[in-house]
């Protein structure tokens, strides 16, 4: 019984870790640049979950003050994650622009082929 409680109370964190590690794996293992960026944003979204999960209070409501509600979730992680999402989009845009330029310079977005190009002495 205690094990079940442990699972329920840490399930968010475990999924967060799974998502984070999946993103890390994609970034390291896959050579395709677009795939790498998707992995990077997976990593990033897992951090949103990491921040928002502890902010929740069971039985609480969204932090919009209104008569008749007493318990509100913590607004601070929400604010931080709003900033993080928008900054994440900005970095993603820069990354994708770099991918487009790399594709123009090398004709490919695969890491292996780019390295092979470099070894040929181009």
């Amino acid at each position: 019984m205690e094990f079940v409680e442990q699972i329920v109370s840490h399930y968010n964190q475990w999924i967060t870790i799974f998502l984070m590690v999946a993103g890390l794996y994609i970034v390291v293992a896959r050579g395709n640049m677009v795939k790498k960026l998707v992995g990077l944003s997976l990593f990033q979204t897992s951090v949103y979950l990491l921040y928002l999960s502890p902010g929740k209070i069971l039985g609480g409501t969204a932090p919009i003050l209104e008569e008749g509600f007493e318990v509100y979730s913590n607004p601070l992680p929400h604010v931080l994650m709003l900033t993080a999402i928008v900054v994440g989009l900005a970095t993603l845009a820069v990354g994708l622009a770099l991918v487009v330029r790399i594709n123009e310079a090398y004709g490919t977005i695969e890491e292996d082929e780019i390295f092979a190009d470099g070894e040929d002495g181009k």
Partner: peptide
């Protein structure tokens, strides 16, 4: 998780804008 503002931003920025950018790159 009661983060309604963040959810709206994620739906528009994460699902909308990011997908448009990535499809453009593809």
């Amino acid at each position: 998780l009661d983060a309604v503002d963040v959810a709206m931003t994620e739906a528009s920025v994460g699902a909308g804008m990011s997908m448009v950018l990535m499809l453009g790159v593809l």
